[in-house]
Every structure is written in C-alpha cells, then in structure tokens.
C-alpha cells in the first residue's frame, strides 16, 4: 500500500526562505532600530524620509518578503518545537492551523499595509 505524499515540502520551502532572509537581515534591523537609535548612538531618520523610503517599490517588496517569510519560518519551526519539545503531537491539527494560520494572517495584514502606505 502506498502512502500519500506529504505537503511538508511546501512549508519547508517557506521555512527555509524565511530562515535565510531573517538570518541575513533581522539582526541589523534590531540593532539599528531597536537599540542604536533609541540609545542615541545614531540619529533617527525623520518621518518624511522613512515614509518615502517605505514607498519605494523595492522597499515594499523587501519588507513584505521579510515579514511574511519570517512569520512562515516561525510557523514551521515552532510547529515542530511544540511536537517535539512539548510532546504535543496529539494536537497536531490545532497546532497546524494556529501556526500557519497566524503566519497567513500576518502576511495579509502586511500586504494591505504595504499596498496602501
């Protein structure tokens, strides 16, 4: 008897893409916006400049990919952490919907914000 092939390759691709983009870009973002600017190590760009930057098509695409893929990266990894680390495999359907559902919701919200900014 042949078993059905899994759709995990799809989620794993998103996980991998998200892991890569977040590994490359999130640390510098956190360092600049979350630590260096609040502590006054570097000056904060003013509102107009940032808005203009955010409206640039490349930035839009970049932010959208960064946020959405990072969320899917979390969804996949956290799903397995719950299965393995907390032995919650028996709740797999709820975990599946919670993880990828949240990532999808975040993606839609980001998409709308990026589109209308």
């Amino acid at each position: 008897m042949q078993k059905k092939r899994s759709n995990d390759p799809f989620w794993w691709t998103l996980f991998g893409a998200g892991g890569t983009i977040s590994a490359f870009f999130i640390p510098v973002h956190v360092l600049l916006f979350g630590i260096a600017m609040p502590l006054g190590w570097i000056s904060v760009p003013d509102y107009e400049t940032l808005l203009q930057l955010a409206q640039h098509p490349v930035t839009r695409l970049y932010i959208f990919a960064l946020v959405s893929l990072s969320l899917f990266h979390w969804a996949h990894r956290f799903r397995y952490t719950l299965y393995d680390g907390l032995m919650l495999k028996h709740l797999e359907h709820y975990i599946f919907i919670f993880c990828y559902g949240s990532a999808l919701a975040g993606t839609v919200i980001t998409g709308v914000l990026i589109w209308t900014i």
Binding site: Q2, K3, K4, R5, S6, D8, P9
Partner: peptide, 8 residues
Amino acid sequence: NDVLLTDD
C-alpha cells in the same frame, strides 16, 4: 520518494 516523501 514514495516511501520517504510521506509523513513518516
């Protein structure tokens, strides 16, 4: 692949 690309 029929064996290894399943849930197990």
